[in-house]
Design a protein around this nucleic acid. Sequence first.
DNA 1: ACATAATGCAAAATATATATTGCATATTAT
DNA 2: ATAATATGCAATATATATTTTGCATTATGT
Lengths: 66, 66
Amino acid sequence: MKNIRMKVARIEREMKQEDLAQVVGVTRQTIGLIEAGKYNPSLKLCIAICKALGKTLDELFWEEKQ
Amino acid sequence: MKNIRMKVARIEREMKQEDLAQVVGVTRQTIGLIEAGKYNPSLKLCIAICKALGKTLDELFWEEKQ
DNA sequence: ACATAATGCAAAATATATATTGCATATTAT
DNA sequence: ATAATATGCAATATATATTTTGCATTATGT
Protein backbone atom coordinates (compact mmCIF):
# COMPACT_ATOMS: atom_id res chain seq x y z
CA MET A 1 0.00 0.00 0.00
CA LYS A 2 1.27 3.45 -0.93
CA ASN A 3 2.56 5.57 1.92
CA ILE A 4 0.80 8.85 1.22
CA ARG A 5 1.43 10.25 4.68
CA MET A 6 5.15 9.92 4.21
CA LYS A 7 5.06 11.59 0.83
CA VAL A 8 2.94 14.45 2.21
CA ALA A 9 5.27 14.93 5.16
CA ARG A 10 8.24 15.05 2.82
CA ILE A 11 6.61 17.58 0.53
CA GLU A 12 5.57 19.71 3.52
CA ARG A 13 9.25 19.93 4.33
CA GLU A 14 9.98 20.80 0.70
CA MET A 15 12.30 17.88 0.29
CA LYS A 16 12.86 15.84 -2.83
CA GLN A 17 13.09 12.07 -2.53
CA GLU A 18 16.77 12.54 -3.08
CA ASP A 19 17.08 15.06 -0.24
CA LEU A 20 15.38 12.74 2.20
CA ALA A 21 17.45 9.83 0.98
CA GLN A 22 20.63 11.74 1.64
CA VAL A 23 19.55 12.80 5.13
CA VAL A 24 18.68 9.26 6.18
CA GLY A 25 21.59 7.65 4.38
CA VAL A 26 19.93 5.57 1.70
CA THR A 27 19.46 5.96 -2.03
CA ARG A 28 16.69 7.79 -3.81
CA GLN A 29 15.29 4.50 -5.07
CA THR A 30 14.80 3.19 -1.56
CA ILE A 31 12.74 6.24 -0.61
CA GLY A 32 10.75 5.99 -3.82
CA LEU A 33 9.95 2.34 -3.25
CA ILE A 34 8.87 2.92 0.34
CA GLU A 35 6.53 5.72 -0.73
CA ALA A 36 5.20 3.48 -3.48
CA GLY A 37 4.52 0.77 -0.89
CA LYS A 38 6.75 -1.65 -2.74
CA TYR A 39 8.70 -2.75 0.19
CA ASN A 40 9.21 -3.35 3.74
CA PRO A 41 11.84 -1.04 5.25
CA SER A 42 13.80 -1.80 8.37
CA LEU A 43 12.78 -0.29 11.70
CA LYS A 44 16.00 1.68 11.83
CA LEU A 45 15.26 3.27 8.48
CA CYS A 46 11.66 4.04 9.46
CA ILE A 47 12.90 5.80 12.58
CA ALA A 48 15.46 7.79 10.60
CA ILE A 49 12.74 8.88 8.16
CA CYS A 50 10.45 9.89 11.01
CA LYS A 51 13.15 12.00 12.61
CA ALA A 52 14.03 13.64 9.32
CA LEU A 53 10.38 14.55 8.75
CA GLY A 54 9.49 15.49 12.33
CA LYS A 55 6.94 12.71 12.74
CA THR A 56 6.60 9.59 14.85
CA LEU A 57 6.29 5.97 13.76
CA ASP A 58 2.57 5.98 14.40
CA GLU A 59 2.11 9.13 12.37
CA LEU A 60 3.86 7.74 9.30
CA PHE A 61 3.70 3.96 9.48
CA TRP A 62 0.82 2.80 11.69
CA GLU A 63 -2.56 1.98 10.20
CA GLU A 64 -5.29 2.36 12.76
CA LYS A 65 -7.60 -0.11 11.07
CA GLN A 66 -6.93 -3.48 9.44
CA MET B 1 19.48 -1.35 22.90
CA LYS B 2 17.26 -3.91 24.66
CA ASN B 3 13.56 -3.61 24.00
CA ILE B 4 12.20 -3.82 27.52
CA ARG B 5 8.76 -2.49 26.57
CA MET B 6 8.26 -5.30 24.11
CA LYS B 7 9.29 -7.91 26.65
CA VAL B 8 6.98 -6.42 29.29
CA ALA B 9 4.06 -6.32 26.86
CA ARG B 10 4.67 -9.94 25.96
CA ILE B 11 4.82 -11.04 29.59
CA GLU B 12 1.66 -9.06 30.39
CA ARG B 13 -0.05 -11.22 27.79
CA GLU B 14 1.48 -14.33 29.37
CA MET B 15 3.15 -15.31 26.15
CA LYS B 16 6.47 -17.07 25.77
CA GLN B 17 8.86 -15.88 23.08
CA GLU B 18 7.85 -18.98 21.20
CA ASP B 19 4.14 -18.15 21.45
CA LEU B 20 4.68 -14.67 20.08
CA ALA B 21 6.95 -16.01 17.36
CA GLN B 22 4.28 -18.40 16.22
CA VAL B 23 1.57 -15.75 16.19
CA VAL B 24 3.63 -13.36 14.06
CA GLY B 25 5.13 -16.07 11.89
CA VAL B 26 8.81 -15.98 12.73
CA THR B 27 11.09 -18.13 14.82
CA ARG B 28 11.72 -17.90 18.55
CA GLN B 29 15.25 -16.71 17.86
CA THR B 30 14.04 -13.71 15.93
CA ILE B 31 11.84 -12.60 18.81
CA GLY B 32 14.68 -13.19 21.27
CA LEU B 33 17.10 -11.14 19.23
CA ILE B 34 14.67 -8.25 18.83
CA GLU B 35 14.04 -8.15 22.57
CA ALA B 36 17.79 -8.30 23.14
CA GLY B 37 18.24 -5.32 20.80
CA LYS B 38 20.50 -7.33 18.56
CA TYR B 39 18.81 -6.51 15.38
CA ASN B 40 16.81 -4.39 13.21
CA PRO B 41 13.46 -5.96 12.35
CA SER B 42 11.39 -5.11 9.31
CA LEU B 43 8.44 -2.73 9.57
CA LYS B 44 6.08 -5.53 8.67
CA LEU B 45 7.34 -7.64 11.54
CA CYS B 46 7.17 -4.72 13.98
CA ILE B 47 3.56 -4.15 13.03
CA ALA B 48 2.71 -7.83 13.43
CA ILE B 49 4.30 -7.80 16.89
CA CYS B 50 2.37 -4.68 17.87
CA LYS B 51 -0.91 -6.21 16.79
CA ALA B 52 -0.18 -9.45 18.63
CA LEU B 53 0.57 -7.51 21.80
CA GLY B 54 -2.17 -4.89 21.53
CA LYS B 55 0.24 -1.97 21.24
CA THR B 56 1.17 0.59 18.61
CA LEU B 57 4.51 1.23 16.95
CA ASP B 58 5.16 4.25 19.11
CA GLU B 59 4.38 2.29 22.26
CA LEU B 60 6.85 -0.46 21.48
CA PHE B 61 9.46 0.93 19.10
CA TRP B 62 9.64 4.71 19.32
CA GLU B 63 12.16 6.39 21.61
CA GLU B 64 11.02 9.86 22.58
CA LYS B 65 14.51 11.15 23.23
CA GLN B 66 17.82 10.52 21.44
C1' DA C 1 18.14 -30.69 44.89
C1' DC C 2 15.95 -32.11 40.98
C1' DA C 3 13.23 -31.86 36.76
C1' DT C 4 11.29 -29.18 33.29
C1' DA C 5 10.50 -25.20 30.72
C1' DA C 6 12.16 -20.82 28.91
C1' DT C 7 15.67 -18.20 27.11
C1' DG C 8 20.50 -17.21 25.37
C1' DC C 9 23.99 -17.97 22.07
C1' DA C 10 26.57 -19.27 17.79
C1' DA C 11 27.51 -21.00 12.90
C1' DA C 12 26.00 -21.83 8.45
C1' DA C 13 22.23 -21.41 5.00
C1' DT C 14 18.59 -18.75 2.88
C1' DA C 15 15.49 -14.87 1.93
C1' DT C 16 15.04 -10.26 1.24
C1' DA C 17 16.20 -5.17 1.89
C1' DT C 18 19.13 -1.93 -0.17
C1' DA C 19 22.70 -0.23 -3.66
C1' DT C 20 24.03 0.63 -8.28
C1' DT C 21 23.38 1.85 -12.93
C1' DG C 22 20.89 3.36 -16.70
C1' DC C 23 16.99 4.84 -19.03
C1' DA C 24 11.88 6.17 -19.38
C1' DT C 25 8.23 9.06 -17.93
C1' DA C 26 6.29 12.81 -15.52
C1' DT C 27 6.43 17.27 -13.49
C1' DT C 28 7.70 22.17 -13.19
C1' DA C 29 9.48 26.46 -14.76
C1' DT C 30 10.80 29.51 -18.52
C1' DA D 1 7.08 24.03 -26.68
C1' DT D 2 11.27 23.40 -24.65
C1' DA D 3 14.56 22.57 -21.05
C1' DA D 4 15.49 21.09 -16.68
C1' DT D 5 14.32 18.62 -12.66
C1' DA D 6 11.97 14.95 -10.18
C1' DT D 7 10.25 10.49 -10.05
C1' DG D 8 9.29 5.65 -11.86
C1' DC D 9 11.00 1.32 -13.23
C1' DA D 10 13.95 -2.83 -14.05
C1' DA D 11 18.19 -5.86 -13.73
C1' DT D 12 22.04 -7.24 -11.29
C1' DA D 13 24.99 -7.03 -7.17
C1' DT D 14 25.65 -6.68 -2.23
C1' DA D 15 24.47 -6.35 2.68
C1' DT D 16 21.84 -7.98 6.19
C1' DA D 17 17.49 -9.96 8.38
C1' DT D 18 15.71 -14.38 9.33
C1' DT D 19 15.92 -19.55 9.51
C1' DT D 20 17.72 -23.76 11.04
C1' DT D 21 19.98 -26.68 14.20
C1' DG D 22 22.06 -27.72 18.34
C1' DC D 23 23.64 -26.94 22.79
C1' DA D 24 24.39 -23.93 27.09
C1' DT D 25 22.37 -21.29 30.62
C1' DT D 26 18.77 -19.42 33.39
C1' DA D 27 14.28 -19.45 35.52
C1' DT D 28 10.20 -21.95 37.62
C1' DG D 29 7.81 -25.50 40.02
C1' DT D 30 7.84 -29.65 42.95
